[in-house]
Measured scan of single mutants.
Amino acid sequence: NRRVIAMPSVRKWAREKGVDIRLVQGTGKNGRVLKEDIDAFLAG
């Protein structure tokens, strides 16, 4: 159960899209999950 680094707005975006943010690979600094990462995860 790893800790995910993400801005609150990104966490909210993931929740709205029904995405478990822990499954998303972050591409930002220090592995931070970005809004673009959520979109890419949804795109496959």
Rank of each mutant, 00 (worst) to 15 (best):
R3L: 13
G28A: 04
T27G: 04
A43Q: 14
G26V: 02
A43F: 11
A6T: 05
V24P: 02
E36I: 13
V10T: 05
T27E: 02
R2A: 10
R11M: 07
L23G: 07
G44I: 14
G28I: 02
D37S: 01
V4L: 08
E36N: 11
L34D: 04
N1G: 14
G18E: 07
L34M: 09
A6C: 06
N30V: 05
T27M: 04
G44W: 14
G44V: 15
R22V: 07
K12G: 05
E16T: 10
P8T: 07
I5A: 06
T27V: 02
I21K: 00
V24E: 00
A40T: 12
A14P: 03
E16S: 12
E36W: 10
V19F: 03
K17F: 07
V24K: 00
V10E: 05
G28S: 03
G31R: 06
I21M: 05
W13G: 04
A14Q: 01
Q25P: 14
E36Y: 10
I21H: 01
A43I: 14
S9K: 11
R22I: 06
V24Y: 00
K35Y: 06
K17S: 10
I38A: 00
V24R: 00
A14M: 02
Q25D: 11
V10F: 02
G31E: 05
I21W: 05
L23T: 08
G18Q: 07
L34Q: 07
W13D: 05
G26L: 01
Q25I: 14
P8N: 09
R32K: 08
V10L: 04
V4T: 07
K12S: 08
K35F: 08
L42K: 07
T27S: 14
I38E: 00
Q25R: 15
L42A: 10
R2K: 15
T27W: 03
R15C: 12
F41G: 03
R3S: 11
V10H: 01
D20G: 02
R32D: 05
R15T: 11
D37Q: 01
A43M: 14
L42R: 07
V4R: 05
M7H: 15
R3P: 13
D39H: 06
W13I: 10
G28L: 02
W13A: 08
E16Y: 12
D37V: 02
S9H: 13
G18P: 00
G31Q: 06
D20T: 03
S9R: 09
G26T: 03
D39K: 08
R2D: 13
R15G: 06
A43H: 12
G26N: 02
L23A: 11
V4Y: 05
S9A: 14
I38R: 00
G28F: 02
G44R: 15
E36Q: 14
N1M: 08
V4H: 05
I5F: 10
R22G: 08
V33F: 01
L34C: 08
W13H: 15
W13C: 07
D37F: 01
M7P: 09
G26R: 02
L42Q: 08
Q25W: 13
A6Y: 04
E16L: 14
I21V: 05
S9W: 12
G18C: 07
A6R: 03
V10N: 02
R11W: 14
K29I: 12
L42H: 08
N1T: 14
G18D: 07
K29L: 12
K29Y: 12
D20M: 04
E36T: 14
V33H: 02
D20F: 03
V33I: 15
D37T: 01
L42Y: 08
K17A: 11
N30F: 13
F41Q: 05
P8F: 07
N1Q: 13
I5Y: 09
F41L: 08
R3W: 09
R22D: 06
I38V: 14
S9D: 13
D37I: 03
R11V: 08
I5S: 07
D39V: 10
D20R: 04
I38Q: 00
K17E: 04
D39F: 07
V10D: 03
T27N: 05
G44S: 15
A14L: 03
N1S: 13
K12R: 13
V33Y: 01
K29A: 13
P8M: 10
R2G: 14
D20E: 06
S9G: 10
A40L: 12
L42D: 05
A14K: 01
I21Q: 00
V19S: 00
R15P: 03
V19C: 06
I21Y: 04
L34K: 09
G18H: 09
R11N: 04
F41H: 09
K35T: 05
A14H: 01
Q25S: 12
F41M: 06
S9C: 11
K35W: 06
R3E: 12
A6Q: 03
R3Y: 10
E36P: 08
G18F: 06
G28V: 02
V24Q: 00
V33M: 03
T27Q: 05
A6S: 06
R32M: 13
V24F: 02
R3K: 15
D39N: 11
N1E: 13
A6D: 03
R3D: 12
V33T: 05
L42S: 07
V19W: 02
A14V: 02
D39W: 06
L34N: 07
M7W: 15
R2Y: 08
V10P: 01
L42C: 07
E36M: 12
S9I: 07
L42V: 14
F41E: 04
R11K: 10
L42W: 07
D37L: 02
A6F: 04
K17N: 15
K17W: 10
D39T: 09
V4G: 05
N30C: 13
G18L: 06
P8R: 15
D39Y: 07
S9T: 08
L23S: 09
R3I: 15
D37A: 02
E16I: 12
V33K: 03
P8S: 10
S9L: 08
L34P: 01
P8Y: 09
P8D: 08
Q25F: 13
D37K: 02
M7E: 15
F41N: 03
L42E: 06
N30W: 13
N30E: 09
A43P: 06
D20P: 06
M7K: 15
G18M: 08
N1Y: 08
G44K: 15
N30R: 12
L34W: 04
